[in-house]
């Protein structure tokens, strides 16, 4: 059986460094050199002060769970073969929020629980996934 194509990211210029960093094993976010605001995904300008000088900054990898869902409907062939699966919104301790998957949770998800970064490869592409932090519940 031929595996359906993975929906690989096709980042534009502003987001390309984010995906390159993940490939190298680092999660990064953007911080505005002018006002200090931090965000994801990558943009050319700060959405708070509009300055055009964001810089890529490494994240420590600590986060909390904002919300999550479990897909039972396959919108794309690759993921239709992996139902059910979760997709989560996580907030890095530095502030930026991102879409991710939670792994190694045994179904025990709670909002605001503490998470830590696990970079995993899916179809060869490095993704920023998260797992519950050992020994604490939020």
């Amino acid at each position: 059986m031929i595996e359906a194509a993975f929906p690989a990211p096709q980042p534009g210029e502003a987001a390309a460094p984010y995906w390159r960093a993940l490939e190298e094993g680092r999660l990064v976010f953007q911080r505005c050199k002018s006002c200090g605001h931090a965000w994801l995904p990558g943009r050319g300008e700060c959405p708070r002060c509009l300055a055009p000088d964001p810089e890529w900054t490494p994240a420590a990898g600590n986060a909390k769970l904002v919300s999550w869902v479990i897909f039972h409907h396959g919108y794309h062939e690759y993921y239709a073969a992996r139902l059910p699966y979760n997709v989560a919104v996580v907030e890095l301790e530095e502030g930026p929020r991102l879409v991710s998957n939670i792994v190694e949770a045994d179904g025990q998800l709670k909002i605001d629980m503490r998470l830590e970064l696990v970079i995993q490869r899916e179809a060869g592409v490095a993704l920023a996934r998260f797992k519950p932090t050992q020994g604490n519940q939020s």
Binding site: F6, P7, A8, P9, Q10, P11, A15, W19, P41, F71, Y75, H76, Y79, R82, Y85, V87, V99, S100, N101, E122, V125, L127
Partner: peptide, 8 residues
């Protein structure tokens, strides 16, 4: 690009 995480 979040489609990589199955976000559709």
């Amino acid at each position: 690009d979040d489609a990589a995480y199955g976000w559709f």
